[in-house]
């Protein structure tokens, strides 16, 4: 059976560096490929270079060296084709003030060279719960609504690659969940999404792959599951039927801790290790006559992993 070649990446960033006029090096030789249809989360502390990287890809900041292609089109030479595939939702709430929601979203569509399509604009506004506000001036909207307007503008021209730069910054919990819903729908529609976020929980929930950027360097790019597996460790908590007064002898080979009330044992293990040791622990517990009421496992969160990674570097 013939093997089809792997689909070309929707975004390819090769050896991209950026040094600002003052001499500050914001990006150092970034290499990154994004597959069509994936959700990629770019994490990093403030000032790490996330927005600079996005701005370069979108044409707002010039790169100092390297090459970026969007769906095979060079962002410099073929900027029209490259940019027409990109939607950008910036971090700051930069909107017009006096235009209506409908006008500003239609304007964005026109700017990207797309013919008028009121049906599409209506759909975008409805999906973002903006339809009722379509005739309102943007200045009368709340911050969360303005954020939706920015997303609507980016979606107005049907991008294949969507950048969400801190989409849920300063957004309340309900709206944040709605936004996640929007992102999910977009992914189902085949849109590739690159998001930066401070809410690691968000990346953990949404992303297929995660990149961590720190001081202008992409220090890690990994499948989320793989990252959690590699860098995370797990804890197994065993609830005991009868409380123990002290750690029973003969368990020294296990990384076990007894809770102060003696009612539970916590076992830490590495998911990466050849053997987790769970089976032998269970066997030993049975041999010692220690009966269990319940058990649970907990994986270290992406946040813990992220903090460890970035702190290691500093």
């Amino acid at each position: 059976m013939p093997v089809s070649p792997p689909a070309p990446p929707i975004l390819s960033v090769a050896n991209v560096s950026k040094t600002y006029e003052g001499g500050f090096q914001a990006l150092k030789a970034i290499d990154l490929e994004i597959a069509r249809g994936e959700i990629f989360a770019l994490l990093g502390p403030n000032g790490a270079g996330k927005t600079t990287l996005i701005s370069i890809i979108c044409g707002i900041v010039n790169l100092s060296s390297g090459k970026v292609t969007v769906d095979g089109h060079d962002i410099g030479r073929d900027f029209r084709l490259a940019r027409s595939k990109i939607g950008l939702v910036p971090q700051e709430l930069t909107t017009d003030a006096f235009e209506s929601v409908w006008d500003t979203v239609s304007f964005s569509r026109g700017l990207f060279g797309k013919k008028k399509d009121p049906a599409h604009v209506e759909k975008v506004l409805r999906d973002l719960s903006l339809w009722e506000k379509r005739d309102n001036k943007i200045m009368t909207l709340s911050g969360g609504m303005k954020r939706r307007v920015l997303i609507a503008k980016a979606l107005s021209h049907e991008p294949e690659l969507l950048f969400l730069d801190e989409p849920t910054a300063g957004v309340d919990v309900a709206l944040r969940r709605e936004m996640w819903e929007v992102v999910r729908k977009l992914r189902e529609a085949g849109v590739t999404i690159i998001l930066t976020t401070h809410y690691i929980e968000e990346a953990e929930m949404m992303a297929d792959r995660i990149g961590v950027i720190s001081r202008g360097e992409l220090i890690l790019v990994e499948e989320k599951a793989e990252l959690m597996r590699k860098l995370g460790h797990k804890e197994l908590t065993l609830q005991l039927m009868e409380p123990l007064e002290r750690m029973p002898a003969g368990f020294t080979e296990f990384d076990l801790a007894l809770s102060p009330d003696g009612r539970s044992l916590t076992y830490s293990y590495d998911t990466n290790a050849e053997r987790t040791g769970i089976a032998s622990l269970m066997r030993r517990l049975a041999e010692e006559g220690i009966r269990l009421r319940d058990l649970s496992t907990k994986q270290s969160t992406l946040e813990e992993i992220f903090v460890n990674l970035v702190e290691e570097r500093v």
Binding site: C58, G59, I60, F79, R80, L81, A82, R83, S84, I86, L88, P90, E92, T94, T95, D96, A97, S108, L111, F112, G113, K153
Partner: peptide, 11 residues
């Protein structure tokens, strides 16, 4: 206002 981002990033 910052809305220039859209002009600069448009094709």
């Amino acid at each position: 206002t910052g809305t220039i981002y859209e002009i600069l990033s448009a094709p």
